[in-house]
Amino acid sequence: MGSWTVHARRLIFLTALLFLWEALAGGLHPSLSLLDPFYSSSPSRIARELYVLFFQENILKDVLVTLGEAFSGLAMGIASGVALGLLFAYSDTVSSTLEPFLSALNSIPRPALAPLVIFWFGIGIFSKIFLAWSIVFFVIFYNTYLGIRSIDPDILNVMRVMGASRLQTMRIVILPSVASWIFAGLRLSVSYALIGAIIGEFVGATAGVGYQLIYAEGLLMSDRLYALVFVVGIMGATVVEVAKRIEGKLLRWRPEVTL
């Protein structure tokens, strides 16, 4: 998508925006200054701060901590979500009993849970993993459950007529169908995992980008806040892009992958 003219237009737009911001913050000439750089910061100040973060403060370590928490939560969320989704699909007794409780739990906004989770697991990485898990788990669980229920009954009938065993039906129809639903929700899941980890770091932590954000806020380091938001943005974009690539590879058989 996008010829070079589209890319050129986008580049011009971005450059203009950055110049305008720089100018209004007084970075080009003092007479143009309309904004207080303490609040607005400016591209040049953010760039300088990014340099400090990466080459003097080793922010990469915090980035890796947060990503580690998010991915641990993601992996656990997928494993447990698939397990319960399968159980729900196979047992009407289980699903009809537990369904309302799961909906109730899922309706709790996760930030509200964060202080309690810190109370349970302390300020180490486990509280962040738990929060990331608590969001991903429900996404994957519902996707698995709905994925199985949405399998074309005629496909199951074909398998029965062919004389397939339960195990064969599981391997040939159920699991691939579940996998496709999980991969279709992967982009959403990785961003949710990241959100969970950062919320946990806000409430109590000793490392991670969320911790660094709270730290910078406490010291009124506005340039650093801007720089950290930029870093977090890049993190989010990167993991979503990776998820998109994986999706595209594994869901090649699909007519199209929606945005």
């Binding site: 005629d154 496909i155 009938n157 040939i172 129809v173 691939p176 169908s177 496709s180 058989w253």
Partner: peptide
């Protein structure tokens, strides 16, 4: 045990 079935909708496995 030796029956084939063709449905109105093709009921093919889309991922295969």
């Amino acid at each position: 045990g030796s029956i084939g079935y063709v449905f109105q909708r093709d009921a093919l496995l889309p991922w295969r």
